[in-house]
């Protein structure tokens, strides 16, 4: 375990908790894509199938449970919580995310590290995580609403990606047999999509800031 990876896991967890607390505190999820949050929950559920078969460390097991629980908590909040679900932009969050699920699964069946049930679902979760931000990106472009996408959420999401890239570079130079090319290539695509998302976030934030200037 190197510092980049640990910090990456922490910032990833914080980004999820910041979003969950923001939704729960303001009892509003306007501007948040439920489809992206559902894809994230699916990413964790399909990536941690080895939760009960392979024990790597207490840290690994605890973090997997926390990621699954917190991502499901956000989906539950947006689907079930009376007040929150009323503020959901149902008519704007229309990205056909099942196409992303189908595409990533097809790719995972073709490109994986080993043609086994667990490895195919692991590759699927890696590909899905890379594109999961798309419904949120489209929603942000349509609504321009950043009320619930706090700057902290964006910052921690970006930090998570940057730290994981540093982690892979670090492991490439320090470990003899480090080959995670599926995760690395997919991670670079994901970081590119996040950069695009941040760009639209900045535009919306700047635009909103202008709107709120005293007339």
């Amino acid at each position: 375990m190197n510092i980049f990876r640990f910090a990456g896991d922490m910032t990833h967890l914080i980004s999820i908790l910041v979003l969950l607390l923001k939704i729960y505190a303001t009892k509003s999820c306007s501007g948040i894509s439920l489809k992206t949050q559902e894809l994230y929950a699916l990413v964790f559920l399909t990536r941690y199938l080895d939760l009960f078969t392979d024990f790597i460390s207490v840290y690994n097991t605890v973090m997997k449970l926390v990621f699954i629980a917190s991502s499901l908590a956000i989906v539950w909040c947006m689907r079930m919580h009376g007040l929150v679900k009323r503020s959901y932009d149902k008519e704007l969050d229309t990205f056909r995310h099942y196409l992303l699920v189908a595409g990533c699964f097809a790719l995972a069946v073709l490109v994986n590290e080993k043609f086994t049930f667990q490895e195919i679902f692991w590759a699927f979760s890696i590909y899905l995580e890379a594109v999961a931000i798309l419904p949120q990106l489209v929603l942000l472009q349509r609504s321009g609403n950043v009320d619930n996408l706090t700057g902290q959420y964006i910052f921690f999401l970006g930090a998570y990606r940057a730290l994981y890239l540093l982690n892979w570079i670090y492991r490439y130079f320090t470990e003899v047999r480090f080959s995670r090319w599926i995760a690395c290539v997919s991670g670079i695509v994901q970081t590119g999509l996040y950069a695009d998302f941040f760009y639209y976030y900045f535009l919306s934030w700047k635009n909103n800031a202008k709107l709120q200037l005293p007339a």
Binding site: D9, D50, D54, N167
Partner: peptide
């Protein structure tokens, strides 16, 4: 035992 590096990253 699985000799390859297990998926130790989250």
């Amino acid at each position: 035992a699985k000799d390859e590096v297990t998926k130790d990253e989250l």
